[in-house]
Design a binder for these strands. Sequence first.
DNA 1: TGACATGTCAAACAAATGTTTTAATTATTT
DNA 2: AAATAATTAAAACATTTGTTTGACATGTCA
Lengths: 233, 233
Amino acid sequence: MNLKSLSSVEAPAHDETRGLLLEAAGEVFAEIGFRNATVREICRRAGANVAAVNYHFGDKETLYAEVLRDSQQKAFEKYPPLLGVASDAPPEEKLRAFIRSFLLRIFDSGSVTRFGKIMSREMVEPTGALDLLLEARIRPMADLLRGLVANILSRPSADEQVRLCCFSIVSQCVFFHHCRTMITRLFPEQRLDAAAAEQLAGHIARFSLAAMKHLPDPEALRSRRVPTARRRR
Amino acid sequence: MNLKSLSSVEAPAHDETRGLLLEAAGEVFAEIGFRNATVREICRRAGANVAAVNYHFGDKETLYAEVLRDSQQKAFEKYPPLLGVASDAPPEEKLRAFIRSFLLRIFDSGSVTRFGKIMSREMVEPTGALDLLLEARIRPMADLLRGLVANILSRPSADEQVRLCCFSIVSQCVFFHHCRTMITRLFPEQRLDAAAAEQLAGHIARFSLAAMKHLPDPEALRSRRVPTARRRR
DNA sequence: TGACATGTCAAACAAATGTTTTAATTATTT
DNA sequence: AAATAATTAAAACATTTGTTTGACATGTCA
């Protein structure tokens, strides 16, 4: 009857526990990782029976893959790689936007931050679920950044210098979730929240743009190393 | 008799298994981490009984702490922070040495590399063992770097700009063990070994020095943001 | 040699944990 | 309302894993 259709719209009753499990699993996996998380704890938080995970998802691993897919979707929905910048903007501005949304994706409070936490663990201890994200999300991001950097450096995308600069930029962004523990212990004065993201994004963009604009030319650098160079200074 | 003292010099016979356990544990912990490692696998590799770990070290955690202490010791013995640079060298040259030895410490083949692998995991999932290293090794390194950067930027050590630049430099170094998985999947052409360490160290030093030399002045930057700035261009 | 400390080993213990089973309950359809 | 399907619940299962135990061997020293 209409009562059924109505309830199914505002709250999907029949798979309510499935949703609760997904939510609880997201929390737990982000907090302590796939291996350390127990289905018992997940079910407890979801207010469900221990058997619920296996009934709704088959096994723990599939649940994890589902959580990763879900959190990644939400993270990129809220913070697309070039958030708030026109498609015809200059590459420097696009790079700033890229760095900023990267950091916001990490420092967002709430459930979005799960994606970053889970990804940190995937870097050190990859599961099969990572491969799904790689081609769908990560590689397009990498290609986008490579294009921007190539443009800024006026060099081909496949250039070694371009690749190295991409490493330098991304490394500064991921640093803050990978090393959060160490940073807060060594530098308690450094805040790590959404407000800090804006500050850090500004620094990383300035630092990287200054570097790329004034990087010594690789060809000149090579010839400088040759012992038979004509001029010593 | 002298037979005993002789054998104890060239090979400590009486605690031979202890050494074998330490070695095997180093391998296993570096490969799969503290949580995933089983004392059974460690003992198997050491050719010892399952009870050996508890007999020689008390428990698994103490063994882990011992491994971390040992690997850290060896890593810094072989690659001190300012490897191969005179104490009166200019700060730019010291920074180059700092970056280079950082990377060599990571990419060294053999048992030294364990330190980097274990540290990567400690960043994401710290154990109690991390605290021991923090004050003894990590903080002195951080202070050293901070001093160099402050010198290069001609700013006080406590300056925010200095702290941010330290982040930028260290992040580029640690990137290659934290994200090794992702890097090799996205950029199979990027080698990650001792030879690559030299190449990468060169890039990171050039990139960071170029950035710091040409970073816009923070005071000028702040005033530029003020809406009542006198001159628009 | 005999007493004693040290080290090793096989077996067992105890707890944690992913998964399965089977019955009960609830919802949906005929 | 009866039948059928979907979901939940409690208990049990099977495996893994850190640790302990008690017997046995080995070396040391009086």
